[in-house]
Amino acid sequence: PAWICQRFRNSYHYATLYDRDRRIPVYSAYKYQPGPGDRSKSWFVEPQLIDPEYVKDMYGEDYIEMKYKITPEKTGQSQAINKDYKHLQSLNLERGHLSPSCHHTGNNKKWATFTLTNIVPQDSTLNKGAWNDYETTTMKEKTNGCETTYVIVGILPGNNYISGKRVNVPSHIWSAACCVVGTKPKKAWAVIAENNKKNKVQELSLGQLEARLRDFYGGRMITLFNNACPRQ
């Protein structure tokens, strides 16, 4: 895996743990700060995954090809590329953000979510339906009264792949949030959804989500938010 501090236009915006083998993020972590701004019309990749000596900012495949003389195919050895996400409609899949642009303010922060290292193949029905409702409506309601809300959105890898077995299709997508007032975590919550057209998001406590993740990862101890937030 690769730890990525997601940098765009010389500023850091959120963090991602990236699975190079499955070519999808394991999770992205960020502060919930929704506000105005535009969605990016371009998609970015990470030069630092091609070579640690390369620039830390995300860029488009065309720029990388021009600057480093590296083809998209070579870029694709270390990560997903645009070509991987073509022809998804027939599979009822689309590009699903882990750190969503709607949870950020201003063009730079929103555009920084349009790196393919923050994207998974997500069921279209879920992405447009119950998951979108959670991102836009439920999060707004639950964060009422919070001064700062920290969020981690992650996946559980699945058995299916797209693009000639290059990119994994997650079996589940999950999200956890911790609400802080002053310096004290006041409450936390979590959800998980099967990545399919059932279009259902299940609400959990933070502790319940951690237990689900522990089961999936063979009993390994998993604590979100460094054990600082309420589990119940």
Rank of each mutant, 00 (worst) to 15 (best):
S11I: 11
Y12E: 12
L17W: 10
Y18S: 00
R20D: 08
R20E: 10
D21E: 11
D21L: 15
P25Y: 05
Y27P: 06
A29R: 06
K31A: 13
Y32T: 08
P34I: 02
G35Y: 05
P36I: 00
D38M: 11
K41T: 03
P47Y: 07
K56Y: 05
M58G: 06
Y59T: 08
Y59K: 12
E61R: 01
E61W: 00
K67V: 15
Y68D: 00
K69T: 04
K74T: 10
A80W: 01
N82K: 14
H87Q: 02
E94S: 09
S99C: 14
T105E: 02
T105L: 05
N107F: 09
N108V: 14
N108T: 12
A112P: 09
T113R: 13
I119G: 02
P121N: 05
Q122H: 06
D123L: 05
S124L: 08
S124C: 04
S124G: 10
T125H: 07
K128T: 15
A130P: 02
D133S: 13
Y134G: 04
K140M: 07
K142C: 07
E147T: 06
V167L: 04
H172Q: 12
W174F: 12
S175E: 03
S175M: 06
A177P: 01
V180Y: 04
V181H: 03
V181C: 05
T183S: 08
T183K: 13
K184T: 13
P185W: 12
A190V: 03
V191G: 10
E194H: 10
E194I: 02
N196G: 06
N196E: 07
K198N: 15
K200M: 14
K200S: 15
L209W: 02
R212I: 14
F216I: 04
R220P: 04
R220W: 11
L224K: 08
N226G: 14
N227E: 10
Q232V: 13
Q232D: 12
